[in-house]
Amino acid sequence: MRGGGSFSADELQMLRKLPAVANATKDRITYADTFKRVCVIRYLSGESPTKIFREAGLPPELIGYKRIERSVARWKKSAIKSVNGSEEMSNSEIIAQLIELFVDTMKTKKKLDNIVGITTPNASAAADASNAAGVVGVPAAVGGFQQSSAGGLDSETAISIIRQQARRIDELQRENEDLRAKLDELTA
């Protein structure tokens, strides 16, 4: 494994199986939107980008340290713009607004699903998760914080939950995009 260069066929196959990766080509990785959001929130919570990528199955020896640094910096800048923030905002203020934006997105998705008649039993999972322990509603697993109760999560379980939630959120986002396109066609 080496970082930053072209990926071999085996590396591409491995990358494409990861929930954090939307697509991978010989020279480029497109990350899942959910992974980007979780990555920014965890980074703003004080975690190392390298650790976040490694836990997502993206070792820096393969991805490249510079590629990771540049990606996280770009995603942070984009996140700040998405919440109408500024560089002067504290990390916790940005996190709070990102979570609020995420919950609002999920509520809108649920409303659109109801209009079209689609039932998604886990559509409220993100809203429920946002009420869990952590920084301004960030779930313990997403925020990288350990729950301090007898029923707390170990890191392996938390990572598994994050991966499952990331896959489901990506599915819901794709459905949401399809629904918006259908709604646009109907109203055009």
Rank of each mutant, 00 (worst) to 15 (best):
L62P: 00
R28W: 03
D170I: 05
L44K: 01
G3Q: 04
T25Q: 04
N131Y: 06
A132T: 01
G151V: 12
A96H: 14
M106L: 07
E61I: 08
V72F: 03
V38S: 13
I169D: 14
T119L: 07
L58R: 01
I52G: 10
L172Y: 11
I68N: 04
V40G: 06
I68S: 03
L98W: 04
A73D: 10
T108L: 15
A181G: 00
L58M: 02
L98G: 05
R54G: 05
A56C: 09
N23T: 03
D104P: 00
L15Q: 01
N91C: 11
E177W: 02
G117I: 08
S90F: 01
L58C: 01
P49A: 03
V103F: 07
I29Y: 01
R37A: 14
I52T: 13
D113I: 01
R70T: 08
T157R: 12
I115A: 06
Y31M: 10
V142T: 07
N114Q: 13
D178G: 06
L44F: 01
I159L: 15
K107M: 09
A188F: 10
I94M: 02
M14G: 00
P19L: 03
V135A: 01
Q146L: 11
A188E: 12
R37N: 14
G152K: 10
N131P: 00
S155I: 14
I68K: 06
D104L: 08
R42D: 02
L62N: 05
L153F: 11
K182L: 12
K51Y: 12
R37Y: 08
G134A: 05
V138H: 02
Y31T: 09
T120G: 07
R37T: 14
T187R: 13
V38H: 15
F53L: 09
S86T: 15
Q13N: 15
L62C: 02
A129C: 13
V136G: 05
R42H: 06
L179R: 15
A140E: 06
K111R: 13
A166L: 14
A166W: 13
N114Y: 01
I80R: 03
W75A: 07
R28E: 10
G134D: 05
P121D: 11
E177T: 11
M89R: 03
E55F: 02
S92Q: 10
E47A: 13
D184L: 11
L62A: 04
P60D: 13
L153P: 02
D128M: 14
Q165C: 12
F145H: 11
G143Q: 10
F145P: 00
A141M: 06
V72S: 04
D10Y: 04
R163T: 11
I161T: 04
K26T: 09
M106K: 12
S45A: 15
N91M: 04
S45E: 09
K36F: 04
Q146N: 09
R174G: 03
F102T: 15
S78C: 05
R54A: 11
E156Q: 14
P139H: 06
T120I: 06
E88I: 07
P139K: 08
S149P: 00
L44R: 02
A141Y: 11
G152N: 10
L101V: 02
E185L: 11
Q146C: 04
A32F: 03
A141W: 10
